[in-house]
Simulated scan of single mutants.
Amino acid sequence: MFNYNFRWNQALNSLPRMLEGALVTMEIALLSMAIGVSVAILLTLCRLSGNRILSAIATTWVEIARNTPALFQIYMAHFGLGGFGIHLSPYVSLLIGIAFNNAGYLAENFRGALKAIPETQTRAGRSLGLSQLQAFRHIILPQMLRIAFLPMTNQMVWAILMTSLGAVVAMNTDLYGVTSDLNARTFRTFELFAIAAVIFYVITKAITLSARLIAARLFRY
């Protein structure tokens, strides 16, 4: 028989700590995206470079990132590297795992975006006296990021949600970790995780809505 006694006041008293955890969650997601985008651009260039070694390295990265669980990638960053004497904190392990995953998915998105840009764009830049690198930086890269903007937004949302996987490496300062710690102390499971779910929802909706506003502002033409 259902006899659970809700104690929302007790759970709401923990809201400040949960919001602090939410800030850590957003920090990890933003850093992982910044790293992921930078690495993804390099991976994309390597895959299209024509160099077999660079292409093989980039393709291997993308295949592992896209075809293994993110949980496995975070676990290997923490415990796998530990086997080689490289001991990382839960924060760094989680950041590396998510950034690795982001880079793999974004590299594939960027490759598709580049394929959608006519080669005549590069030739036009070269005809104006730009080097290959300058043409890519000033002409191709902005168009590529524009085409891949919405997939990048989806990956950002995914990065926010992936931070909850930090539990496997004893991460306890993010939103999920703080909520789990509070639950172990108070046993207010339903109330605490319901509040955490609302916070996750608000964060992800804020990201998607902000992305739509940015896209409408920057990509009108």
Rank of each mutant, 00 (worst) to 15 (best):
A159S: 15
N5S: 14
L182R: 01
I64M: 08
A148L: 02
L94A: 07
L141C: 11
A22W: 00
G82K: 05
R220Y: 14
G166K: 03
N101Q: 12
Y91T: 12
S180N: 09
F110A: 04
M162W: 03
A22F: 05
T59E: 15
T189N: 12
V178E: 04
G36K: 00
N102A: 14
E119H: 14
S131W: 04
L88C: 09
A11D: 02
I195Q: 02
G85L: 03
L88G: 07
M144P: 08
L95N: 03
S38H: 07
L161A: 14
L81C: 09
I199F: 02
Q10D: 14
A70H: 06
F84Y: 10
A211D: 13
A170I: 12
D181E: 10
L30Q: 08
I28V: 14
Y176P: 01
Q73I: 09
Q132A: 10
G177I: 04
G177A: 12
P90V: 04
A216D: 14
V178H: 04
G125T: 02
L12M: 12
R137P: 07
V24T: 11
M26R: 09
R137W: 06
I64V: 15
Q134K: 14
L175C: 11
S32Y: 03
K115L: 15
W8T: 08
P142F: 11
Y201R: 07
N101A: 10
A206H: 00
I28N: 00
I57N: 01
P142K: 11
S55C: 12
D181Y: 08
V24E: 00
L94K: 00
P151D: 08
F110K: 04
T60R: 03
R47I: 07
K115I: 15
G36W: 00
A124H: 06
V169H: 00
A148N: 08
L88V: 08
I98Q: 00
L161R: 14
N102E: 13
T189P: 01
L175H: 09
M18D: 10
T122I: 12
F100P: 07
T179I: 09
E108W: 01
Y4Q: 15
L182S: 02
A107W: 01
T60C: 14
E63R: 05
E20G: 12
M171F: 03
N102R: 01
A22I: 09
I86G: 07
L81T: 01
Y201Q: 13
L23P: 02
N154M: 06
A107N: 01
I117L: 07
A40K: 02
F6T: 13
T68Q: 09
R17I: 10
E108N: 14
L106H: 04
F219V: 03
L128K: 11
F72C: 13
F187Y: 15
A77H: 04
E119P: 00
G85I: 04
A197V: 03
H78V: 08
T179Q: 04
Y176V: 01
V169M: 08
M76N: 04
V37S: 05
G50M: 06
I117C: 06
R137E: 12
R7C: 05
A40R: 02
F84K: 06
G104M: 04
L54S: 05
R126N: 08
S89I: 06
G112P: 13
L23H: 08
S89R: 03
A34F: 11
A159P: 08
A99G: 09
I41Q: 00
A196I: 07
N172D: 13
V168H: 01
N154C: 03
M76K: 00
T120P: 09
G112C: 10
